[in-house]
């Protein structure tokens, strides 16, 4: 008995050790990124000289590049994407879940079928449409592409679970259609709305291929696109690139630290998309 206990303890320590290695492998690249951003290294090594670290790269980034404009653009795109996605998805999701209208199921499944189409496949048609509408280099060209059928699907699935009795009793109490939506449906859907917002934040903040084709003007670039441009233009200024990368990392990371649970749920939800 004693022997097998010892065996279990050893296997437990091996599991812990492996998990620590995995966690380290996930975190280390980001620590490396932050440390490199504080140095003027020309050759990449695993060791760091902590006494020679300073914020010079960040100063150069702020003075030499419109990096704050990139941050502003990213924040505008993310906010618009989140706002419009929530408005569209909750309203349409509510209609698909609780309202009766002709061909409801057919319209819903047709709409849902658009999710089968990966973004890259419609890259060229969407680009051509935006170009003909003179919408290249505008914010709507960047957030409109984020608004797909997924949010509507998510909301419908959730709102179907809200009991009809609640809606009926609100109506008897004198609530109008808008009142029912604002005072009954929205508050009840709060958790799934938060998940949708988090998911949209990450998707639009990290989006690369759409800004890459839609944006040519420097003053309209998002931070993710700006980082890629920075990397192509200053291949060997490692510290500078890593300072830009740290900046792009810090916004989602802070949000992740605050809303960890919603993050994991919101992003895991996107798995339904497949």
């Amino acid at each position: 008995m004693r022997h097998s206990n010892g065996k279990i303890r050893i296997s437990k320590w091996i599991i812990y050790l492996l998990l620590i290695i995995l966690a380290a492998a996930s975190i280390y690249p980001f620590i490396f990124m932050i440390l490199t951003s504080l140095t003027q290294k020309k050759i990449m090594t695993a060791s760091f000289d902590f006494s020679a670290m300073d914020l010079r790269n960040y100063k150069n980034l702020l003075s030499g590049f419109p990096i704050l404009t990139y941050v502003k653009n990213s924040l505008i795109v993310v906010s618009c994407a989140c706002f419009f996605y929530v408005v569209i998805a909750t309203l349409a999701g509510y209609a698909f879940a609780k309202k009766k209208f002709p061909l409801k199921e057919a319209v819903f499944w047709l709409y849902l079928a658009t999710l089968m189409m990966p973004g890259q496949v419609i890259l060229i048609p969407v680009f051509t449409i935006m170009k003909n509408l003179n919408m290249l280099n505008t914010y709507p060209s960047l957030f409109a592409v984020i608004l797909d059928a997924f949010g509507v699907f998510l909301m419908r699935q959730f709102m179907e679970g809200i009991p009809d009795d609640l809606i009926e009793s609100a109506r008897i109490d004198g609530c109008g259609e808008l009142g029912i939506f604002m005072r009954v449906i929205l508050p009840l859907s709060k958790p799934v709305i938060v998940s949708l917002v988090v998911f949209t934040f990450i998707t639009s903040w990290n989006d690369f291929i759409w800004p890459l084709v839609m944006i040519t003007k420097d003053e309209m670039k998002t931070l993710t696109l700006g980082l890629s441009m920075l990397q192509n233009a200053y291949v060997s200024s490692y510290g500078l690139i890593m300072a830009g990368a740290t900046l792009a990392f810090i916004f989602p990371f802070i949000l992740y630290c605050i809303l960890q649970k919603q993050f994991v749920e919101g992003i895991a939800l996107s798995g339904i998309k497949g």
């Binding site: 996930s26 975190i27 690249p29 980001f30 990450i202 903040w205 990290n206 989006d207 690369f208 993710t224 980082l227 890629s228 990397q231 990368a245 792009a248 990392f249 989602p252 990371f253 992740y256 993050f263 992003i267």
Partner: peptide, 9 residues
Amino acid sequence: IPVITSMVL
């Protein structure tokens, strides 16, 4: 953490 960061980064 790697999931929330962009592929570019």
